[in-house]
Write a protein that binds this DNA or RNA. Structure first.
Lengths: 348, 348
DNA sequence: TGCTAGCACTCATTAACTCCGACTGCTAAC
DNA sequence: GTTAGCAGTCGGAGTTAATGAGTGCTAGCA
């Protein structure tokens, strides 16, 4: 893009994307003239379109067809939206969202899920939510509960509730005082830390001669926490995966299958989102190649509690998606989620 | 079916289903003659097919096409398999299955999931597993663990491990001796029972004046258990849902979407299986109407530990599926699963 | 110089038609 | 009861023609 486009070119491009999003069909010069600029003739628009084609903004499927937008056109369009503000939601929509968030949800995972549901329902696209908090969960306390047969239940209590429970066998049975001593030692080492810190922890440097007798239980606890971190970093929820099949872009089984395979695999979804800096509030990516979901656009928004980004949620849809609406919804959800999460925080 | 079919008719029918399963195309009289009965002419087979058509076993898509089997033909075919024994698995297949079950899985849910994976991988159809144990889980013990701020953690220990943990607030704080007394009373009422018994339990009849002071905690525990039962009866796992899209029967997006919608909704899957008596070892249902998955056949097998049916697993595929193989696999899995589950039992 | 009206041209889409070949059903002979 | 042979049926593939949406270009006008 060496040079700024003329105002008129921009207007035409915007109109073209608008119409194309609505219809999915190549847009003719007459379409644009009728709906957007009756003050000039279609021939003039044709001349401009011809120029835009040379600049790589639009394409013609064949000689006697209208134009379809290319990626740069979408990018310009999206840039305009972000600049001028997104489409406001209707009253019904905001009411719907508030209602859905009315009943209290305690677990972060539930909130993610609910958010993804709402986004998918309101936009009618496939949505997802990824909570990235994972490693930042704070270990409050470790509890040991003796069970029968020399087994001990280990509970790991965090600021998000109990993240894991697991029974372990204690070598040689549970002797008197064992529980109390072990609990104290474990909490000395683990309590007050963030689970992320423990990723590559070297237990040897933490343990003294005194604690070495409890080596087994230390190992077990560490393993539990590490498993938790591995499983819960980038916890992914996808909602409305089948909605994509309603759009003609995915009206063939081959593509549909591909899409569903990617979207059902949480690792792939995480990868799709990789590279988004936490600092970016909105990210719009159009037609990401070799991801298995080319022909798609992905819009994500970062959600914060205070200053900390706790997750991203977003929409994946056809390139010609209703960007105005989607960005509007994600923006509203940002506020709504902020409130829900903050309230939740206070309650604890 | 007023009268037994002649041997030759049966043979022709069997051949027809065989070929149709392999090719998915209408089968001509010549196909049957070539592959299965070169001793008679195709004209003879045509005459027999004509008779079979009159009897409702086969159909002709149009005048100049071969025949395709109808439900009664499949049923006869499946009956033969069950009678004559299913196709044996290849050595690679049994090795594959054994390998997959090699690493120990502790939770019933994990075993279900693994079983579904195996079945889907070996057969190449969509599979599912439903553990119906649900209500039969035995309550071993209830543990109360005091946490800070007057909260108490309730742990419900069953013969399947800890089924639920939840923190509750205790009115007026946790007084000295409260934990011990409450634990004893709770266990008096709940320990040793099956969770299913507690479905519509009337607490009033169980409580005495003495226990009435602990009414709150009784209510809480009962609620936890009931939630668990509601969530865990008919725990459903589906694997390889997308495999169905490989079959030409589901080569259009509309049908594919329908299928996926049904199969992704665990309640619908449960419903599909409803009506199978636990006592039935194998159930084959072909083309179940108004279920959203007509054009499908569903084969399920019951899995037992000792004499108790702990779940069903099965395959859902196109009507023309490889019944021999599927029944063979399910049968083998029956033994394999029996072993896994029994071992597991002994370990506890 | 920029805009526009008008026209010739292009090309996807659809419908109508034909041809081919895969099967069957029927019949007459064995 | 079986079979060879043949006429008849019908779907699918390929061809052609008609349609119409939309463009690019050009000549004339402000």
């Amino acid at each position: 893009m060496s040079k700024e486009l003329s105002e008129r070119k921009k207007k035409i491009l915007h109109a073209l994307v608008d119409v194309y999003i609505a219809t999915g069909q190549p847009v003719s010069s007459a379409d644009i003239q009728k709906g957007y600029m009756p003050e000039v003739s279609s021939a003039t628009i044709r001349a401009e379109l011809s120029a835009l084609e040379a600049l790589g903004y639009v394409d013609q499927p064949h000689t006697s067809a209208g134009r379809i937008p290319l990626k740069p056109a979408y990018q310009l369009y999206v840039g305009d939206i972000e600049h001028n503000g997104a489409g406001a939601l209707t009253d019904e929509e905001t009411a719907f969202i508030r209602k859905k968030f009315a009943d209290k949800l305690s677990e972060v995972r539930d909130i993610s899920k609910r958010a993804a549901e709402i986004i998918s329902d309101v936009t009618n696209y496939t949505s997802f939510a990824v909570s990235s908090r994972g490693g930042n969960v704070m270990l409050d306390e470790i509890k040991l509960v003796p069970l029968k047969d020399g087994k001990v239940l280990v509970l790991i209590v965090t600021d998000e509730g109990i993240i894991a429970d697991k029974t372990i066998d204690v070598e040689g049975g549970v002797k008197h005082g064992y529980i109390e001593t072990a609990t104290r030692m474990l909490n000395n080492v683990f309590a007050g830390r963030r689970v992320g810190e423990l990723e590559g922890m070297d237990l040897d440097s933490e343990l003294t001669a005194e604690t070495d007798a409890f080596r087994d239980i230390f190992d077990a606890v560490l393993a539990i926490i590490q498993t938790y971190v591995a499983e819960h970093t980038d916890d992914v929820v996808v909602e409305g995966a089948l909605k994509m099949l309603d759009y003609p872009e995915y009206n063939n089984v081959e593509d549909a299958k591909n899409f569903l395979a990617v979207i059902s695999d949480h690792d792939s979804v995480s990868e799709l989102l990789a590279g988004d800096e936490d600092s970016i509030e909105f990210s719009v990516r159009i037609g990401k190649e070799d991801s298995g979901v080319d022909k798609c656009a992905i819009i994500t928004a970062a959600y914060k509690v205070g200053d900390e980004v706790v997750g991203r949620a977003g929409v994946i849809g056809p390139e010609r998606m209703d960007y105005k609406k989607v960005i509007g919804v994600l923006d509203y959800m940002k506020k709504a989620l902020g409130t829900v999460l903050d309230n939740d925080k206070e309650d604890e």
